[in-house]
Design a protein around this nucleic acid. Structure first.
Lengths: 210, 210
DNA sequence: AGAATAATTTTGTTGAACAAAATATGTCAA
DNA sequence: TTGACATATTTTGTTCAACAAAATTATTCT
């Protein structure tokens, strides 16, 4: 595996886990030394993260961890509505394997919640929504949505009380999943739309506060 | 403007114009010298193009101009259907400015066709479809769709007889646009779906041949 | 305190270098 | 001749040291 991708993966983990908070400058010399790579390969990694939208780069000012403003959060949910609702509408054409993956993700979410693993709840819940999009069967949309979920996690990480953020969403994931698997596409879509509206509102509120 | 981005833009132009055909290896030393930059900054540019999907990179084998296989073309149209049809459905909420941009793009397409500028027809037609997606009002979807149109142009460029490819699509763009502006969303959506189906079939056929 | 000026840091970029993998070339035996 | 093997040669992956240019910080002077 190329060093640049390895470094990018490492930085991505630290950004999404909240270890590198939004706005933090990523100093090339220091971080390259810390990750034991040259400044040049580190810069290649920065290009990758920049293309993913996880960092913001300015000429002669370097890179900082991207911060999720309110318009960006709203954009995020606009994208999610566009892709996830379309996926629910078209779920009649989904393969059984793709639908099984959707159910599997919800199961993992419930398991994480039962174990009190709030970060796991967020991860697996987003995996559920990713599996939803995956029922469309488009690799391009899958990688795009993967980037969307990354930015969603970035928004989560910027909120202090992550446990509170993730609570009480699991049953709604389950409801959407069950409606979908039962073939009630209109009901599933309506539930999903309400879910996304509520989630957006809560995240905007919490982000304003901090 | 950073050198890496400038180089990436230059390579992007040459790839999308067909000057650098799919499969062509991008040799670092030679091209960096040609563009008068160091190999390191050239590699940064390659990372950018790789993230856009315009080149394919393999460890120790370097980068080659991406080639559009049949599954990739089908994926492209799956994405286009997902975004463009959603845009038409939601066009009731579009701003007047966004709708005006849609009409403007079709006008430019017609002008290019009247002038016999086939490349211009392709460019402006894709701009029309991009304007369609832009009515959703999502910056993220806009940049994503910009990448989609880039790959679409890549597929066009790989076809020998580009003039034949672009002919006779302009009236259908116009039809979709008029139905949309008149508020006949269902009819516009149906026309758009037929358009995308036909375009996909033709492109797959022509790509098989070459 | 505030503005002008001088250090210092940081980024942008280059060029040379070298190991490692891939590719091309040449050699030899069946 | 052909196929397999060993040997160059090329190309990529990566590092390091350097320097100009812009930004940031410190300092001086009023």
């Amino acid at each position: 595996m190329p060093s640049a991708e390895r470094v990018a993966a490492s930085l991505r983990d630290e950004i999404l886990s909240g270890a590198l908070p939004p706005g933090l400058p990523l100093r090339e010399a220091a971080l390259a030394a810390e990750l034991a790579v040259s400044r040049n390969t580190f810069r290649e990694a920065l290009r990758l993260l920049g293309a993913e939208g996880l960092i913001e780069q300015q000429l002669y000012k370097g890179a900082v961890v991207a911060s999720m403003s309110e318009p960006r959060i709203r954009d995020l949910y606009l994208v999610r509505r566009t892709l996830e609702l379309r996926a629910v509408e078209e779920s009649g054409a989904a393969t059984p394997a793709a639908l099984a993956a959707v159910d599997d993700a919800v199961r993992h979410t419930e398991a994480a919640e039962a174990a009190g693993d709030w970060r796991g709840v967020g991860t697996h819940s987003l995996r559920f929504h990713g599996a939803l999009v995956a029922t469309l069967g488009s690799p391009m949309l899958d990688v795009f949505f993967h980037g969307v979920t990354a930015q969603q996690r970035l928004a989560f990480a910027a909120v202090a009380d992550e446990a509170r953020l993730q609570r009480s969403w699991t049953p709604r994931d389950r409801e959407i999943c069950d409606l979908l698997l039962a073939g009630f596409r209109a009901a599933a879509g309506a539930a999903l739309r309400r879910y996304l509206d509520d989630s957006e509102q809560m995240l905007v509120q919490l982000t304003k506060g901090s």
